[in-house]
Design a protein around this nucleic acid. Structure first.
Lengths: 323, 323
DNA sequence: GTGAAAGCGCTAACAA
DNA sequence: TTGTTAGCGCTTTCAC
């Protein structure tokens, strides 16, 4: 193993000089700097991460709790994690995947000084982790917007604005009666924050523009088409649909394409998914990677002591499908 | 911050006694052990991870390179990672998500002593990471079976056996002409190891049982149905299909359900996905979590110095769909 | 502009 | 059965 002492010896300087060349916290003559840099390159030296963090009292690691056994939106979770990792890397942070999903996992990582900060996905309202996070001495950011997390920094997609946007768009297309097909019933019933916000935006925009909107839980997979058919039968005149369900989108889109009903379908999903789905009128992209990147950046700001908004909501953007 | 010295003081013992109580590497009287345990609990002490790994020269961290921007099988990747994390946790290991996907990322993590071992997914034949891994002083396990990785431990699903099993099953169902719809063309053309192995197993079993098999690339999404229709038109008498494409499965299954052709469809996909897909004759489950767990366990064996097979292949299991 | 040396919190000899 | 202490490799005062 190559240590800082090896580098110092090779460059003919003291170890503190090597350290200062790497950190830039001291002015070093150009000549010395070059010699040290050369020695580092020659020896393929990488500072021992643990030694460094023991001495510097910081790890350059972010702890991440991600829902790996996710129900619905696997693609979204993966893309968010991808965004986090990419952004974190550019900020010189590594990501430690926390293996337990509970509050104890968070406080353990913090107490063991394994991480400089914590990033937590999939937090629900009344989640015990909220109180735990507030009591820890490492900063944290939530991805999502659970009720009761007032003290914490939250980053999320603006589902309410997305619901509103979709309703307005469908109204502009001339529809007078529209429906939202969302998450499976079990998710809706938990009153997951994002689902509630989407519904709220959708219905309030319907009110505002004076059209009729309804909301329906939607199972994953092929069953979804049955639910859609039932709603279409029960609501004559229904002609515009917003769908937010990764596992149902493909089936519903394909089903409606062969249906006698004349209607417009807007999907709320990652952009890539909209592109491979035929039969969409429009789509609203969930900027999943952007959410991850924004969360990592919010953490950077916290760590740097910058003052920022507690809540960061990424705005929805309407896209022509297939374009 | 609570240190081992605080615990020692509270328990009225020396710090080494505390250390030995935690590691169990020394026999300690029951009484002392209890006092120390009590102090640890009272103070909510967690050993400083960096200090520990600096002194013990091991991190209890596994570095993982996972394809986050995956093309096809997001579900599979997520489940594998879930399996890794779960198993690693039970082995007292944490997972560090390596942020760069290249060889340099691997050697950096190793040289910086950030990890005790490396787990690498999505390695292709002739991947430069293979040589890098072989030169590293930390043990590693690949998930996949790339050509040229003879020196390394590899864990994967037995795609060849799966292809063989599917063909045999379709033959047993009475089909004389069957087809495999696999990955998108760009994946097949890269000669990704798993795709090649699946094809080999499928075709060789066709030969053995004396039926005709053909293999076709399959695009993701709704386009897939067009390809299937074209093949059905071109191959009269085709009546059995094996499909291995997460993004196409739903569309193809739905499409065939409404088709005039009388045929059996076998899906190769995670069990959960088969369950939500209607119209399958059978399915062969990809035990994604099991792969992750097996990989983590292979790493544990390596770390423990156990002698094991270089290649671990998880066998396919035929399941009645919808059952 | 550079060096020497005191820790960071822990593990594991070495001693008793 | 327990305590004392020398490192692990680095950062950062303090000294020049």
């Amino acid at each position: 193993m190559v240590t800082i002492a090896d580098v110092a010896r090779a460059a003919g300087v003291s170890i503190s000089t090597v350290s200062y060349v790497m950190s830039g916290k001291r002015t070093i003559s150009q000549e010395t700097r070059d010699r040290v840099a050369q020695a580092i390159a020659d020896l393929e030296y990488s500072p021992h991460a643990s030694a460094r963090s023991l001495a510097s009292r910081s790890t350059n690691v972010i702890g991440l709790q991600a829902p790996l056994r996710a129900g619905v939106d696997v693609h979204v979770v993966m893309q968010i994690v991808g965004g986090i990792v990419t952004e974190a890397r550019s900020l010189q942070y590594d990501i430690l995947l926390l293996s337990s999903d509970d509050a104890a996992g968070l406080s353990h990582a913090a107490r063991a000084s394994m991480v400089d900060a914590l990033l937590v996905m999939d937090v629900e309202s009344d989640d015990p982790r909220i109180k735990t996070l507030e009591g820890l001495d490492v900063p944290s950011v939530l991805i999502g917007l659970p009720a009761g997390a007032d003290g914490l920094v939250c980053v999320d997609f603006d589902f309410e604005a997305a619901g509103r946007l979709a309703a307005q768009r469908l109204a502009a297309l001339g529809h007078r009666r529209i429906a939202l097909f969302g998450a499976p019933a079990e998710v809706l019933e938990r009153h997951t924050s994002y689902a509630d916000r989407l519904v709220r935006g959708f219905l309030s925009a319907c009110d505002e523009v004076g059209i009729v909107g309804s909301v329906h839980a939607c199972p994953t997979g092929a069953d979804s088409t049955r639910v859609v058919d039932a709603v279409l039968a029960a609501e004559p005149g229904l002609s515009g649909i917003l769908i937010h369900n990764e596992g149902a989108l493909g089936h519903v889109a394909a089903h409606l394409a062969t249906s006698p009903h004349e209607l417009d379908l807007i999907a709320l999903c990652p952009a890539e998914m909209a592109q491979t789905t035929a039969g969409l009128a429009d789509s609203i992209a969930i900027p999943a990677e952007g959410i991850g990147a924004a969360a990592a950046d919010a953490l950077r700001a916290l760590l740097a002591g910058e003052q920022r908004d507690k809540v960061v909501l990424l705005p929805p953007v309407l896209a022509s499908a297939g374009a």
